[in-house]
Nucleic acid binder design. Sequence first.
DNA 1: ACAAAATCTAAACATTTGTTATCGTTTTCC
DNA 2: GGAAAACGATAACAAATGTTTAGATTTTGT
Lengths: 189, 189
Amino acid sequence: MNTLRNAISQMISISEAEAEEFMAFCYRKSFRKKAILSDDDQFINEVYFIEKGILRVKIIDLDGREHTTHFASENQFIADYNAFLTGKKSRYQLEAMEDLETVVLPRKAIEWGYQNLKEGEKLGRLVAEYYFIYLDTRIQHLYTLSPLERYDLMNGLFPDIHNRVPQHMIASYLGITPIHLSRIKKQKD
Amino acid sequence: MNTLRNAISQMISISEAEAEEFMAFCYRKSFRKKAILSDDDQFINEVYFIEKGILRVKIIDLDGREHTTHFASENQFIADYNAFLTGKKSRYQLEAMEDLETVVLPRKAIEWGYQNLKEGEKLGRLVAEYYFIYLDTRIQHLYTLSPLERYDLMNGLFPDIHNRVPQHMIASYLGITPIHLSRIKKQKD
DNA sequence: ACAAAATCTAAACATTTGTTATCGTTTTCC
DNA sequence: GGAAAACGATAACAAATGTTTAGATTTTGT
């Protein structure tokens, strides 16, 4: 749980006593590769913090097709935060790509934090801002970059992604078919 | 400025005295149709609140092409919030589509609010969460819906958008060319 | 260790979407 | 009020991307 504690300490100042009490609401949970941490069509009341491993976030459209919208790995918070915040049912599935070790932050922990941590609201603000910035940047890239350019960019952001997830999921993340990704990579030479 | 005050009151509880003091940092500003409120390649230290009118957010890619990424109208906060938060130069331009009346919230107002409003951090959290939810929903739609489906959806969200902005900007927002939007609309019959 | 499943590439073809050019209409701006 | 610009539709053509199928290789599960 120290990893979570460190991550929080990097965002806000938090006392030993506060941290202790906050962590009491949280617990560790492991998942096997391919496990679904969080399923769609259900209400979301937990946020995960990843200590080890990598997962993907995917969404299924009306034709039953899967789209990988996001990857998350060590030292990141992950959830269908949209559903968590709005109280609507989730549209996403979280699927472990490797054996995972996580810390679960139940809604109670987070609400307790808002009310009792000196900088609890600030922590919530920084997390929301962080993910807002991430999504805004992605939207910028979707509008202004070609799939190949986005592919190169992703390699800069996640240098080891190729060894951890199959390429057809990367293609899905880029919004193209795996066949097309093959073509694009070939053209690079 | 009452419109801004009301918008804030809907999100947090704020006393008369607090509101008074906060508003003292803000001021009204008007823009003519086609004016650029906020230019790209510069640092962002203001957030706008729209009292009247509508604007678009656009981004210019390396080939010099414009992409309309967002519309904002009455009772909404708008800025390159990404650049505002990160301290990086803006990638967006904000352009008035009609004569605009706005209230400017300078960075000082917002920072003062975080430190002095009882629920200042909470306000910041709610705004960031609101825009995160908006962007996440857009990304869901980009992955799972066709341009036509996104077009129909947009009409539900902004019923009067057609009377306020030209169609080629709507096409740009949808990520397609105006010619293609014409085609799509024709197929609907 | 071995059979089954998953993965990546490739080619041929189909579909979608973009590009360029044109035309008539509407809007804008002095 | 009138010239100029912006706008929306359309057609013909070009480019990008998806679909289907196949085959070779690797990974997975037991």
